[in-house]
Design a protein around this nucleic acid. Structure first.
Length: 815
RNA sequence: GCAGAUGUGGCGGAAUUGGUAGACGCACAGGACUUAAAAUCCUGCGAGGGUUAAACCUCGUGCCGGUUCGAUUCCGGCCAUCUGCACCA
């Protein structure tokens, strides 16, 4: 193989010199915005996962460009976040320094990969010219009432004196020091994503996304229809519960509050105060993960108080238990042990009564808990109604008394965006003793992240320790004020970056409305399915919010979504440093050049599937490259010869036919991210060319044309290699600038095909026919075929099924 | 526990979406070239039976059933692996 890393470098330089990947936003061609999820610069090197995401997606973008689209294919970096900060805590290297270094290195590696990016369009979320606008968006949301502050629990490590992310909590313990995590309440900022719950759910129908990802979002949004029902307490307090099963209201034997609920303090009787206090303390020690674990047995305590069931005036005890969550529904549950698994388990443990009120239609003796719908019993005037009828009737009856109503609940929670961290965009809010919460005026943005800050954890948000940062004057009254010390969740930065790319140098606004409406939404978005819930729902929310604020005119950020699969370690497990099964692309690139590697990862795996790494096939790709180089060499030799044959006979027709079949198949395959079969098709064409060249009397014109097509078809997949071969063919321009070939229906015609003949669905023989014949003519040939006649003679034929041009099945009576 | 995905030769993976199962490649075996090896080229390659060789026959897409002239594909029930989510009232 002549091709090597040197070839890559040569072409990378030429591309740069000639500005080959320059994007022209004013082009007349139809735009196609093709985007890969940008990467987090946590290490200095692209790993195999990056390659598997970016290289094939780049091939897709190249293919679309050659097809004639004005392809917009930018790349950037999601540069704020925890790992850089942790790295800094460990090594003392400032996050800004390590991040910038990593970005530089990764950018270089993306060039080495052969990425067709125009680096004039890029974003780095940690740069003030980007996070200025992240802050600006925060302020717009705040002004629109979509950003608000409330108390929420965080994971707190007492010995590290710091807040931990969920992922830093391992089995309820701090990943760093191993001490127990406590839950502590802090006032934090939220985005009101719940306001968009219904639209986020409905609009999924509009999207060309994998069904499984849509389902994840449906689940995440978690719409459930039910009723809110009011239980009065003895001291005139009220408990409102949410239930999806109002039909079981007569079966309520107790009511449960979340331990955090404010009502708990108000209703607990003197006698039980101590118990309740202890229980709440105990629960607060548990991390959320621990508390929600199914392994754990349910616990709870009695408050001493009672509530009145509005449907039958029964007095039921009020408990608190950690299986009830403060922030779902109303934070209170009516417990129906006979018809709910959790309530049943809890009631059994604490000896609470279990009252059956729903029965299965035809069975008397059912096992409890019975959670399906059925017919009501033990429910007074509602006896005999179906669950559905009873739901409606009971809710209506309660509504008349003002003690209940129909309602819809979503599992989706508002998005907590405060982080008690250093390496993030400062939240642009000022606190003034006189004026209260004051957003930073837009002309004062960005609120710069100070460089010299002690970011080692010691119990306070790092920014609080910087006096220069914290102390400021109130924009309203000019008095002394302090800044918000928390930074924004990095998901905020990544929830709008696709809007910034097309207008990334704009210093007057986040993006021009005209440009964003012209270039967005993203037409094809490629990235891992681990983002199915968070990033992909946050970005959808942000688009809708900005639309309602008038900054853009579309509803969804990403029209089509593709998830690449995951490349696992050779042992079949997820690659991780701790398992020692990581594979570095670098050594392969150095040895073989990036195109061999690109082609191999595309050929050896199903793009959507991934699979365990296996380097066996990589040598095969070297062989394929060598064969193509040989074809070019032989073609050039042949060009020098004087003989001129213009005949077009069967051999030539077949070559042309295969050429067109290949064009057709590769067009469809790459369009659908089926790179493995696309490469297989290119191999078929090269095999056919080889076969043709071995013959005598070669039609030079047809051969050369076909070889040129092969190289054009390879451009998206192996860009450096294809340029090199194109040049060897004596071409002066870039193969990247060639037009993707069209299929010639004329040349596709001809050839022979086999029509399989089945007897009772089993293949017996084939009838070979001319492919051009129409259905009827083929049928006549089949009927005349001696093999078919023989089958008729030997069997009692019941019927015959002809799938035109496909298959012929003869059904016979069984002997 | 719930949800989703996947299961096809020795291996990676194809199969026009209900119509010749195993494209393309790897590995392997035999042959050619070579003093030899490597590289390259040609041939074979699901399993079992059968034949001097063919022809041919049977089985075969995780397992068990169903629908159909025909099922890798659709339906029902299991099993295994992977990935998400976590008591959602």
């Amino acid at each position: 193989m002549e091709y090597s890393k040197k070839t890559d470098i040569k072409w990378q330089e030429k591309w740069k010199e000639n500005n080959v990947y320059k994007f022209d936003i004013n082009s007349d061609k139809e735009k196609l915005y093709c985007l890969e999820m940008f990467s987090y610069p946590s290490g200095a090197k692209l790993h195999l996962g990056h390659w598997f995401n970016y290289a094939p997606a780049d091939s897709f973008a190249r293919f679309k460009k050659m097809e004639g689209y004005n392809v917009f294919h930018p790349m950037g970096f999601d540069a704020f976040g925890l790992p850089a900060e942790n790295y800094a805590i460990k090594t003392g290297i400032h996050p800004e320094e390590s991040t910038k270094k990593n970005i530089k290195a990764m950018k270089h590696q993306l060039e080495e990969m052969g990425g067709s990016y125009d680096w004039n369009y890029t974003v780095e979320t940690c740069m003030p010219d980007y996070y200025k606008w992240t802050q600006w968006i925060f302020i717009q949301l705040y002004k629109a009432g979509l950003a608000y502050k409330k108390e929420a629990p965080v994971n707190w490590c007492d010995s590290c004196k710091t807040v931990l992310a969920n992922e830093q909590v391992i089995n309820g313990k701090c990943e760093r020091c191993g001490s127990e995590i406590k839950r502590r309440k802090l006032a934090q900022w939220f985005f009101k994503i719940t306001k968009y719950a219904e639209e986020l759910l409905q609009d999924l129908d509009k999207l060309d996304w994998p069904e499984s990802t849509k389902k994840v979002q449906v689940n995440w949004i978690g719409k459930s229809e039910g009723s809110e029902i009011v239980f009065k307490c003895e001291n005139n307090k009220e408990i409102t519960v949410f239930t999806t099963r109002p039909d079981t209201l007569n079966g309520v034997t107790y009511v449960v509050l979340a331990p955090e609920s404010k009502l708990v303090q108000e209703i607990t009787t003197e006698e039980y105060k101590e118990n309740v206090k202890n229980y709440i303390e105990q629960t607060s020690k548990l991390s959320e993960i621990e508390r929600l674990s199914t392994e754990k047995e349910k616990t709870g305590v009695f408050t001493g108080a009672y509530a009145i069931n509005p449907i039958n005036n029964e007095k039921v005890p009020i408990w608190i238990a950690d299986y009830v969550l403060e922030d779902y529904g109303t934070g209170a549950v009516m417990a129906v042990p006979a018809h709910d698994e959790r309530d049943y388990e809890f009631a059994s443990k604490y000896g609470l009564p279990i009252k059956q009120v729903v029965n299965k239609e035809d069975i008397d003796d059912i096992e409890l808990p019975f959670t399906e719908k059925g017919i009501l019993i033990n429910s007074g005037k509602y006896d005999g109604l179906s669950s559905e009828e009873a739901k409606k009737q009971i809710t209506e009856d309660l509504a008349l008394k003002g003690e209940g109503r129909k309602t819809v609940n979503y599992r989706l929670k508002d998005w907590l965006v405060s982080r008690q961290r250093y390496w993030g965009a400062p939240i642009p809010i000022i606190y003034c003793d006189k004026c209260g919460v004051v957003p930073v005026p837009e002309e004062d943005l960005p609120v710069l992240l100070p460089h010299n800050v002690e970011f080692k954890p010691d119990g306070e948000s790092p920014l609080k320790k910087s006096k220069e940062f914290m102390n400021c004057t109130c924009p309203k009254c000019g008095g002394k004020a302090t800044r918000e010390a928390d930074t924004l969740d990095t998901f905020v930065c990544s929830s709008w970056y696709e809007l910034r790319y097309p207008d990334c140098k704009n210093d007057k606004e986040a993006f021009s409305k005209d440009i964003v409406n012209k270039m967005n939404p993203v037409d094809v978005y490629v990235g891992g399915k681990e983002h199915a819930a968070m990033h992909l729902i946050y970005a959808r929310f942000m688009t809708k919010a900005l639309r309602d604020l008038g900054y853009l005119d579309f509803d969804e950020p990403f029209k089509k979504l593709i998830h690449q699969g995951m490349i696992l370690g050779p042992d079949g497990n997820k690659m991780s440093k701790s398992k020692g099964n990581t594979v570095s692309p670098e050594e392969y690139i150095d040895e073989y050049g990036s195109d061999v590697f690109r082609m191999y990862i595309m050929f050896g795996f199903d793009y959507r599937q991934g699979g365990p790494w296996n380097e066996k096939g990589i040598e095969a790709m070297v062989r394929y490259f060598t064969r193509i180089e040989k074809i070019i060499e032989d073609t050039n030799e042949l060009k020098k010869t004087e003989t001129d044959i213009e005949k077009i006979e069967d051999k030539e027709k077949e070559l042309l036919r295969v050429k067109n079949q290949t064009i057709k198949a590769m067009t469809e395959d790459i369009d659908d991210f089926r790179f493995n079969t696309a490469i297989a098709r290119s191999m078929e064409l090269s095999n056919k060319i080889n076969e043709y060249m071995k013959g005598s009397e070669i039609n030079k014109k047809i051969l050369v044309e076909t070889v040129e097509i092969l190289i054009i078809l390879l451009e998206p997949l192996a860009p450096h290699f294809a340029e090199e071969q194109w040049q060897r063919l004596g071409k002066k321009d870039f193969v990247y600038n060639q037009k993707w070939p069209n299929v010639s229906e004329e040349e596709l015609k001809g050839g022979k095909k086999d029509i399989p003949i089945q007897v009772n669905g089993k293949l017996k023989c084939c009838v070979t026919v001319n492919a051009e014949l129409n259905e009827k003519e083929i049928l006549e040939l089949i009927k005349k075929d001696p093999k078919v006649i023989k089958i008729h003679e030997d069997n009692e034929v019941i019927k015959e099924i002809y799938v035109p041009g496909r298959i012929y099945n003869i059904v016979t009576k069984k002997k």
